[in-house]
Simulated scan of single mutants.
Amino acid sequence: MVGQSIIGLMFQQSGSAVGCLASSWVLASASFGITSIYIDEAGTTAPVVGFGPGFWIWYLSIVTGFLSAIVLFFVPRKLPTEAISLTEGDFLR
């Protein structure tokens, strides 16, 4: 979903990006409810005692993407008022 939202932001489809990143944020927030993890194939579990820096970088990347999509959703798009002409000699000034 995060990949779809990045593509949506590239093509100025911030509405769909907000939706994808909001659902990604909800799914990522479900990670806080995990109390134990499987550590081998026999079904042995170990308690989750904390989250490391990799988890926080992953989680904050989703939050940052969501906030940037919200900002881009509310910022008005300014289109150029006049065409840019690159006639001969203009780029040398």
Rank of each mutant, 00 (worst) to 15 (best):
W58N: 03
S23C: 06
E41S: 15
L72Q: 05
Y59L: 04
A42L: 13
S85D: 11
S5F: 02
G3E: 11
E88T: 10
Q13L: 13
G33E: 06
T44M: 05
F66N: 01
I7L: 14
S14W: 01
Q13H: 14
P80Q: 13
T44Y: 03
A46G: 02
T45W: 11
L72Y: 06
L72C: 03
S23T: 14
S16W: 01
T87W: 15
F74I: 07
L9Y: 03
D40F: 11
G3P: 02
L9R: 00
S29F: 10
G65S: 15
E82Y: 10
D40P: 05
Y59P: 00
S29M: 11
S61P: 04
G3D: 13
L21F: 01
S31H: 08
S61Y: 09
L60C: 07
E88G: 03
L86R: 09
V2E: 06
Y59Q: 02
S36K: 15
A69F: 00
T35Y: 07
M1G: 08
F74D: 04
G19I: 04
S36V: 14
G89R: 02
D40V: 07
A69E: 01
F55H: 01
V26G: 03
M1E: 13
V2D: 02
A69D: 00
A28S: 06
L79P: 02
D90S: 12
A46E: 11
G89D: 05
G43F: 05
P76L: 08
W25P: 01
L60V: 05
I62G: 01
T64N: 08
L79E: 07
V2W: 01
K78L: 13
K78H: 14
R93K: 12
G43Q: 03
I57Y: 07
V48Q: 03
V49Q: 13
R77P: 01
S23K: 11
P76K: 07
G33A: 11
A42Q: 09
S24C: 11
